[in-house]
């Protein structure tokens, strides 16, 4: 099956959670539920702010160290954008269930002890942000994330956005970056060998994807040449997804 190149999302997919989202992009499909603010357990209770609990569950097998690592990265970056001070002594619980990951047709993966790849990070991050927005949890800003790999090609190095599993395998370094809607860098995690120059290039590419400026002229059809920009436009994607959600939600207002 071909992996969809444009991100797709649906909000409010789980009827019993406060907020939920299903997001698929570059072969990854993740469903998230958000419950909160709810009563926190004694050990998680903080007198001045909400505790953000992130749980990542792989599609097959039980979560291990890698999932805990992803959870801790997500937890610290989500705590930054949620207004945790608004809900002292409470808990905001984000559960991320991975449904699909792109398969590498050239390798037989050991699925039973599946551990999640670093490149799934943008999908996890984006789904959590969408689910938080769907739950109406107050936030400082929205955010967008992307994965960028530096892949050697014909002796030169090429920067690839949303790398495929095959590309990750041969990549020299993989980077995950997230930016808030105020264009601040929220998260930067890297894996592999790279130079400062390469990182600068990666940063620029990621920023272009996450923080493309809003269309200058209202009403004019936006000419979005995906080829030209080298990746999807996360910011507009987020806005259009929420536009439909808000209209539907406010029917009874």
């Amino acid at each position: 099956m071909t992996a969809s190149t444009l991100p797709e999302a649906a909000l409010g997919v789980l009827p019993r959670a406060d907020g939920s989202a299903k997001y698929s992009h570059a072969g990854y499909t993740v469903t998230a539920s958000v419950n909160g603010p709810i009563e926190a357990q004694r050990r998680d209770e903080h007198p001045y702010e909400a505790h953000v609990d992130v749980i990542v569950r792989p599609a097959a097998g039980v979560g291990g160290t890698r999932e805990r690592h992803l959870e801790s990265i997500l937890q610290s970056s989500l705590t930054q954008i949620i207004l945790v001070k608004n809900f002292p002594r409470s808990l905001i619980q984000v559960v991320l269930q991975v449904e699909d990951t792109p398969e590498n047709d050239y390798v037989n993966t050991k699925l039973v002890q599946a551990s999640l790849n670093f490149a799934i990070m943008p999908a996890l991050f984006q789904t959590s942000v969408l689910a938080l927005l769907s739950a109406g949890v107050p936030m400082r800003a929205t955010a967008a994330a992307t994965a960028v790999a530096v892949v050697p090609e014909d002796g030169a190095k090429k920067i690839v956005v949303d790398p495929s599993p095959r590309q990750i395998e041969i990549a020299q370094s993989v980077h995950v970056l997230a930016f808030t809607s105020q264009e601040e860098l929220l998260l930067a995690e890297s894996e592999g060998d790279f130079t400062v120059k390469e990182w600068d290039d990666v940063y620029e590419t990621a920023q272009k994807i996450c923080c493309r400026p809003a269309s200058t002229k209202e009403g004019m059809e936006m000419v979005l040449d995906e080829e030209d920009a080298g990746g999807p436009d996360m910011r507009h994607f987020l806005r259009s997804t929420l536009e439909s959600k808000v209209t539907a939600d406010l029917h009874w207002k």
């Binding site: 959670a17 039980v62 619980q93």
Partner: peptide
């Protein structure tokens, strides 16, 4: 393998 996560219910 069946595991009920907090997604099912907190």
């Amino acid at each position: 393998a069946t595991e009920l996560s907090p997604m099912t219910s907190p």
